[in-house]
Design a protein around this nucleic acid. Sequence first.
DNA 1: CTACCCCTTAACGTTACGTCAAGCTCAAGT
DNA 2: ACTTGAGCTTGACGTAACGTTAAGGGGTAG
Lengths: 256, 256
Amino acid sequence: MNYTIKQLSDLAGVSTRTLRYYDQIDLLKPERINQSGYRVYGPKQVDLLQQILFYRELAFSLKEIRSLLKSPNFNFRDALTDHHQKLIAKKQHLEQLIRTVEQTLAAQKGAIQMTDHEKFDAFKKEKLAENERKYGREIRENYGEKTIEKANKQFAGLSRADYEKTQAIEKEMFENLSKAMQLNDPASAAAQKAAALHRQWLFFFWPEGTYSKEAHAGLAQMYVDDPRFTSYYDTHLANGAAKMLRDAVNIYTQQN
Amino acid sequence: MNYTIKQLSDLAGVSTRTLRYYDQIDLLKPERINQSGYRVYGPKQVDLLQQILFYRELAFSLKEIRSLLKSPNFNFRDALTDHHQKLIAKKQHLEQLIRTVEQTLAAQKGAIQMTDHEKFDAFKKEKLAENERKYGREIRENYGEKTIEKANKQFAGLSRADYEKTQAIEKEMFENLSKAMQLNDPASAAAQKAAALHRQWLFFFWPEGTYSKEAHAGLAQMYVDDPRFTSYYDTHLANGAAKMLRDAVNIYTQQN
DNA sequence: CTACCCCTTAACGTTACGTCAAGCTCAAGT
DNA sequence: ACTTGAGCTTGACGTAACGTTAAGGGGTAG
């Protein structure tokens, strides 16, 4: 039995474009081309297409399918196992994403309930005062009066949306830092992510143009040297959190 | 503070290509272009980029991000909720895929243990005989002696890999049929999937060129009319399975 | 003055097709 | 025989989000 492209496409439930594409990429060539230039498919091609669609269902890429079908010693099981790993990895990534979105959503909801504008303003001011109390002197010493004034102004000027972003960033940073501490590796992906998030976080609080790799690394060192900083990080996670962050930031600023 | 493209890219941890691309698609334009044609970014752009990257982390598409940031009444919560739904759907799809792969893998493993070539041959012959016993007469009546002979020959000629494929297809078909029965809807996606898989399955057993929508629908009717067919499907799933398959195939053949 | 780094635009490559567009072929009805 | 309409062909653009050359101008430090 021979089929035209349309007949085969109807049979298999794919578009003619798909069949032409498969021809083009050497995945499924027609048996022959007739005098009018029409593609003619035979039973072998029907079988092959069947197999192709089977693999496609399993979300193999066409390139992978081509390899599988063309290599004479196609190792179905290894390919499947490998494929399985990839799918699992994808799923885990998706789950992480979903968690992050849910957290952001939860933070958002909490904020919405806090409709009282005054409350929010007060909260910001409180944070600012706290910040001032805690780190004011250090920052002042390092960057001077003007810088700290500008920083305070910037924090006071944060919109509610921005404020929530800082919270989300800080939260994610803590999560990555936590993972890094389990791995006990400041060069791990999680640790580096934490360092990157920490930088992002700083951008919200440092006056424009203040950021530099040196300042970042310096601040991280301060986290270890000053017990007030240290305790902030260590009590939020576990002992050694400040050190881990410092080490991660050191690697981060050297590499980027 | 102003930044060149490289400075901003270092600051934010993205490539310069990315920034040029964002310029190109109107997502993030530089503050101005200087005399030499260089892009110059200011603090506003730094903030914007920060936001863009925040959304990007959550796997929003750039198009969505643009909408979010450009629309004055950007509803962050609705967007997040919507986005959350999509991610969940994706995850469920992935999970289904993973299950299918695992089943195929399991079937594959079972087959591998059956290394005895004779055994496999015997098994095929047994199936063939069973098939012959069960449905021989009906198929003979409908399609004639030659057809049934060719069908038997085709089944006997199945490679082990092909045989395993038929098993996998049949299994997946049963799963979809099961879901369709829970929904009690022969037009549902699951039911139509089952019908499509059933067609795929037939291609392995029917002689070349035998398939037609009419034959397919006819066979499905036979599944209901003949108690031996009916029991095969009903005992593998639940009472009414044969009817569900028939209805699904009817809709399927009419629509495709 | 010359390295050398940074900047620009242009354009191809990636994945798996969908969607025209222009033009040739085939089967059927008048 | 001729027309019509369906089916076939190749070619080429569009999609997402950049990575990667390539060719050529700008800026600065030795």
